[in-house]
Amino acid sequence: MAEMATRTRTTKTATKKATKGDRSQTVERALEVLAAFDDAHPELGIRELARMLQMDRTVVYRIVATLEARKFLEQNPATRRYRIGQAAFMTGQYYVRSNPIFNAAVPRLQTVATTHNVNAFLATLHEDSVLYMSSIQLREPITFLLSAGSRGRLHTTSLGKVLLAGLEDAQVEKTLRRIRMVPLTPRSQVSVKGLMSEVRQVRRQGYATSRDTMVMGLASVGAPIRDASGAVVAAISLSLPSDEGDEAFMRKLTRTVIQCAQEISLAVGATIDGCVDAA
């Protein structure tokens, strides 16, 4: 198979690139407040936000009051703490609906998942996490509470390894040294050296596999989605119980996920030369 080379993107714009001095400090602080809410912190109070973000409590109060008035935050009447509001939810939904990768991938993943009786996932790289854009789960008993916006670990999933393989080696190593690589199973790879070796192999072969590294009894295979520049912008994976994934079926599933990823890539502007040869 053709090597999954990494490519950097350059974008030509008519205007100069914004610098830190061009940005609004007030808007940045408001976005920091919104970004503080996650799976580990679904609700936060003013004092907690001020402490977490190292901001003055009065500043945080004014930001929260504004976000609440615009329905980007809402207050839980029982706890008096704040949580993400309807306006933030709707804005996030617009991201998914208007995203060409999502629109090209989901119908194809639904077909593949139904045809092969597997679970299918679409994700992109966000900071140091796998960010799930879609989760199509048809298989039991192995299903996950994953939905659009959920985050996953880079080091224990085939999706994560594919997304890491789209970066340069220096970026991969920096990321792996920055994240907390917790062993989720006895087979989880938590060595930077070991993961670097796996990522390089993913680049060479054009796909990633995992077996019992995230959850015992789960096998998966993932492949990259590329844009017009050839850069890896997302990844898809197919998963099933490990005891059903014999060598012959996993080879078939690998060809399927690579072909599906190619079709999605072409739909969002990639060229044949920029895609991995699945033959």
Rank of each mutant, 00 (worst) to 15 (best):
G160Y: 04
P241V: 11
L109V: 08
R203I: 07
S239R: 04
M181S: 13
T10S: 06
L53N: 03
A120W: 02
M216A: 10
L73E: 09
V221D: 02
L163W: 09
N99R: 00
A40T: 13
C275M: 07
L34E: 13
V106P: 00
S229I: 01
S229W: 04
D227P: 01
R187V: 12
P42N: 09
R23T: 07
R70D: 14
R204M: 08
Q110A: 10
R187A: 15
E173D: 14
D227T: 01
T175F: 13
E168F: 09
A18L: 14
V106Y: 03
R80V: 12
A248E: 13
F144E: 09
Y82G: 12
V232K: 00
Y207A: 08
Y94H: 09
T114N: 12
L218D: 06
R80T: 12
S147G: 15
V221M: 03
A223L: 04
T115I: 02
E127N: 03
T13H: 14
K17N: 08
A88S: 10
T13L: 11
A270E: 10
L253T: 02
R139Y: 11
R153K: 09
Q75F: 05
G206D: 01
V59Q: 12
L109T: 01
R83E: 11
F249N: 05
P77Y: 11
K193D: 15
Q110I: 13
T15E: 02
A267S: 08
G21R: 01
D128Q: 08
V192W: 13
R180Q: 14
G92A: 00
S265F: 06
R23K: 14
A113M: 07
C260K: 05
F121V: 08
H116E: 05
N119W: 00
A18N: 10
G274M: 10
A234K: 04
R51K: 12
Y207F: 11
V172A: 06
S24R: 06
R139C: 10
A123I: 01
V192H: 13
L49T: 01
